[in-house]
């Protein structure tokens, strides 16, 4: 009996360690791959509010692209969106794309109305209905901001709530570097 218990302990610990190592190696590999991939704007499509697939490369290539990943129920996203809405003129020269993992159209529309995002002409709201964002970008921190220059090279990532001035400063650097 004692011998069986010993073998059982070895098997359980060995299996757990093995499982964790394999998972860590795989996940780490995926993460590194995504880190390299997103250095240039990835070729990925999300659905527009009207349900039409929109590729991130379809936007005006003469403007830097700001991708904001958000959730309509997140308080930090709400604050960030409201701040962007209030500072709309400062974002006039950029293309803003807000991607929500939530497939509830009503909630997203309510969020945009409450934060006055509809008033921004250069803003596109997209829905990540098939959970592509995490697969492609490697992370799905809510909220997060990805800034791409006009040549569609990544210049800056912000994880967590970000003030408009920080986003503008990062894009200013991109304009001067171009």
């Amino acid at each position: 009996m004692r011998r069986i218990v010993k073998y059982l302990i070895i098997v359980i610990i060995g299996f757990t360690v093995g499982f964790l190592i394999v998972h860590i190696i795989n996940r780490y590999g995926e993460k590194k791959e995504a880190e390299t991939r997103i250095q240039s704007l990835p070729c990925v499509s999300f659905n527009s509010i009207s349900g039409i697939p929109v590729n991130l490369h379809e936007f005006d290539q003469t403007k830097p692209l700001i991708i904001i990943y958000f959730h309509p129920e997140c308080e930090h996203c709400r604050y960030e969106a409201r701040e962007i809405g209030q500072n709309a003129p400062a974002f006039h020269h950029f293309q803003l794309v807000m991607v929500a993992p939530d497939d509830s159209l009503q909630r997203v529309e309510k969020f945009c109305s409450e934060t006055h995002l509809w008033e921004l002409e250069n803003l596109e709201i997209l829905l990540d209905t098939e959970n592509q964002f995490k697969k492609v970008f490697g992370n799905a921190v809510i909220p997060s901001v990805y800034i791409y220059a006009t040549n569609r090279k990544l210049i800056k990532i912000f994880f967590g709530e970000t003030k408009p001035q920080a986003i503008i400063n990062a894009t200013k650097n991109s304009l001067t570097s171009n």
């Binding site: 604050y79 701040e83 912000f158 967590g160 709530e161 970000t162 003030k163 001035q165 920080a166």
Partner: peptide
Amino acid sequence: QNQLSINR
């Protein structure tokens, strides 16, 4: 300070 406003 580089990412959040002072009041936040």
